[in-house]
């Protein structure tokens, strides 16, 4: 069959567009690396973990570039939020799928979708004006690791809930009928049949939520107080890697600016690891 002449140009056009879309990630990594090189060369990766403090504005020689407090901040707030949001999100998915009567389940799902659509800056604002004053009454100063964990939990819960729910929905009906025929109770069916069958989808949900928690900027920036310190308790103010970029990009010059791009590369590396883990889980899920 001969190809009409117009088709060749169409094929090349869509190929070109696909290459452009696929190339954006490379472009991002390239530009982050390009901007990070001065800091990596003049400061070196080691000093980002061994320096005494974070005073990057004084130049490569006299400044200090310790990122450990920010890394600790990011890890603790993300871990805390994921640990709370995972069981709550799965419970919420179970409610939608197995516990709520039909119409209520649909209404509840719509509500979760609405929560998922609220912009992070609105969550941050709400956290700043409502949540942190409440925590301040209990344990000053209010802007704290705890506030960050709570706000992030609310933000990633819809991700866990919606993805887990769609994974539960795709379980073959025969599994559930079989369990019912065996006389299993509702909880026994969920624990023994539904959750194991939906396992890989739920893992994916948790991984995506982790990525969102690590990368979230505005909400944590607004509720966590942004003091550079390794948190001693959940009531301490903390600064995350993302908040650090948002706070300092506005005035950072030279090595300082370059150091912020190093943290951008670190965040990028975390994302790549999470996506790779997810892809691997997906392959194993298909094989099982």
């Amino acid at each position: 069959m001969s190809q009409p002449r117009g088709d060749a140009s169409l094929i090349w056009a869509v190929r070109g567009l696909a290459v452009a879309s696929g190339g954006i990630v490379l472009l991002i990594v390239a530009f982050l690396a390009l901007e990070a090189i001065p800091a990596l060369r003049e400061v070196g990766l080691r000093r980002f973990f061994t320096d005494a403090s974070w005073h990057p504005a004084d130049g490569a020689d006299r400044g200090a570039f310790n990122l450990v407090p920010m890394v600790a901040g990011t890890l603790t707030v993300a871990t805390g939020a994921v640990l709370i949001a995972t069981p709550l999100g799965i419970a919420s998915a179970l409610f939608c799928r197995f516990y709520a009567p039909g119409a209520l389940g649909r209404a509840y799902r719509r509500l979760v979708e609405l929560l998922a659509g609220i912009p992070s800056v609105v969550y941050g604002f709400w956290g700043l004006v409502v949540l942190t004053p409440l925590i301040r009454q209990w344990q000053p100063p209010g802007q704290s690791l705890l506030a960050g964990i709570l706000i992030l939990t609310v933000m990633i819960l819809p991700t866990v809930a919606l993805l887990s729910e769609s994974s539960l929905r795709s379980i073959p009906a025969a599994y559930l009928r079989g369990a019912t025929a065996l006389g299993l109770s509702r909880w026994a069916t969920i624990r023994g049949v539904a959750l194991p069958a939906a396992r890989s989808g739920i893992f994916t949900a948790v991984i995506l939520a982790t990525g969102r928690a690590v990368g979230e900027t505005m909400a944590v920036l607004m509720v966590m107080g942004n003091i550079v310190q390794v948190p001693g308790s959940v009531f301490d103010p903390v600064r995350t890697l993302t908040a650090n970029i948002a706070l300092e990009m506005g005035y950072a010059m030279e090595v300082h600016r370059s150091a912020l791009f190093v943290t951008g590369l670190m965040l990028m590396a975390i994302v790549v690891v999470l996506v790779a883990a997810n892809a691997r889980l997906g392959r194993e899920g298909r094989r099982a």
Binding site: I24, V25, I28, F31, L32, L208, M249, F261, G264, M268
Partner: peptide, 26 residues
């Protein structure tokens, strides 16, 4: 080619917004 494009889009979907900010600024 399809796998590469898909893979890079998966990564792109997970990139934190502040990193997009750094990239766009640069």
């Amino acid at each position: 080619p399809a796998r590469l494009v898909r893979g890079s889009l998966d990564v792109l979907a997970g990139v934190p917004s502040i990193v997009f900010g750094l990239f766009g600024n640069a």
